[in-house]
């Protein structure tokens, strides 16, 4: 199974986490061998927050303090223009040597648009079409440079091969973006696209575009039906069912530690999901219990790998490259 750990940096008990707290947490998660950390971003939720950091800047900083673990930042399609967001994440992916991911939420945050010169926000239908167009642009921009485009040939004076740089030339309902991106292809091909906040109407978009989806926790039988339905949608798009990993959110509490390994095993074996996104409470010490008590048990049962096998987030998640090269 795949294991992500998710931290709402704004939550931390009303007390701001320092960067060194967060770096310590990231190294702890890396030492435990988890696939990735998903960093929520506070702005969409409310004006009251205790987080001193915005998620993409935090991921850049954490990338220099870690070596293996995937680092996924939440970033909103309202707060950034698609070209800028694509650049930021492509750059994070190079800084981290291929460990970056973008968590795009399909749920519109009610307060956010009003801070971005859109006091009325978007209708649900517009927001969905806009999000889909936006994701397409970002993924298209990420593929603007072929993996072998950079030549670095000093003698001939050819820095890159112009044939291997591609314009996007996107003209759509909401955006017009010519491209190409001015950031090179990353060591993992393209950043990992994580989609969250999905409702029924978003599932086909996710099936077409996502590498990972995060779903809320439901009773086991419901999870299985939902998982099967989603994988059918993935197949219908001409993708391998395994090309998108479904992670179910698990809210970790001090009381839920005992018996958790068994619960996760049952759900995983039922094929209710491909893994879990462990959502940490404000009390971060519960994470110690997860690492000391739950993780060894999952390993003993052969459900989670002993160590990292590759160096990129795509390799941790068993994902192929992000698109045609």
């Amino acid at each position: 199974m795949y294991l992500a750990v998710s931290l709402d940096i704004a939550l931390a008990n009303g007390q701001a986490l320092t960067f060194s707290d967060l770096a310590g947490f990231a190294r702890q998660a890396e030492a435990a061998g988890l696939d990735m950390i998903v960093l929520d971003d506070s702005a969409p939720h409310s004006a009251a927050s205790s987080s001193p950091f915005e998620a993409t800047t935090l991921v850049a900083a954490l990338a220099t303090m870690t070596e293996k673990i995937g680092l996924v930042a939440t970033a909103s399609t309202v707060a950034h223009q698609p070209y800028n967001l694509a650049r930021r994440f492509a750059s994070l992916d190079i800084i981290s040597h291929g460990r970056a991911g973008w968590n795009a939420t399909m749920a519109q945050a009610p307060r956010e648009a009003a801070n971005f010169s859109r006091p009325d926000g978007f209708s649900a239908e517009d927001f969905r079409r806009r999000s889909e167009e936006y994701i397409g642009i970002v993924q298209g921009l990420w593929q603007g440079w072929d993996a072998d485009a950079l030549l670095f040939d000093r003698d001939s004076g050819r820095f890159h091969d112009p044939e291997k740089m591609h314009l996007l030339d996107h003209k759509g309902e909401f955006f017009s973006v010519r491209g190409p991106l001015n950031v090179a292809r990353s060591p993992q091909d393209t950043p990992v696209l994580v989609l969250s906040g999905l409702t029924e109407g978003d599932l086909d978009i996710a099936a077409r575009t996502a590498d990972v989806i995060l779903l809320d926790e439901r009773p086991a039988a419901e999870n299985k039906a939902r998982h099967d339905d989603f994988k059918r949608r993935v197949s219908a798009c001409g993708r391998e069912p395994d090309a998108v990993k479904v992670l179910t959110d698990i809210s970790l509490t001090a009381d839920s530690i005992s018996g958790l390994a068994g619960r996760l095993e049952e759900e995983f074996r039922l094929r209710g999901c491909d893994g879990f996104n462990i959502r940490l409470p404000a009390q971060l010490s519960v994470f110690d219990d997860f690492i000391d008590r739950v993780l060894p048990e999952l390993r003993r049962r052969g459900l989670f790998r002993e160590r990292y096998r590759g160096t990129t987030l795509r390799s941790h998640l068993g994902l192929a490259g992000g698109g045609e090269q």
């Binding site: 960067f19 770096a23 993409t56 800047t57 935090l58 991921v59 850049a60 900083a61 990338a63 220099t64 303090m65 800028n84 650049r87 930021r88 492509a90 750059s91 994070l92 190079i94 800084i95 440079w145 950079l150 004076g157 050819r158 820095f159 890159h160 091969d161 112009p162 740089m165 001015n182 950031v183 090179a184």
Partner: peptide, 23 residues
């Protein structure tokens, strides 16, 4: 054709770059 003879078509996005340098 001219761009391909300079190194300026690709590079880091600066806010992520400086966030890494900050720490």
């Amino acid at each position: 054709a001219i761009a391909s003879q300079t190194s300026r078509s690709i590079g880091f996005e600066p806010i992520s770059l400086l966030s890494a340098l900050a720490v």
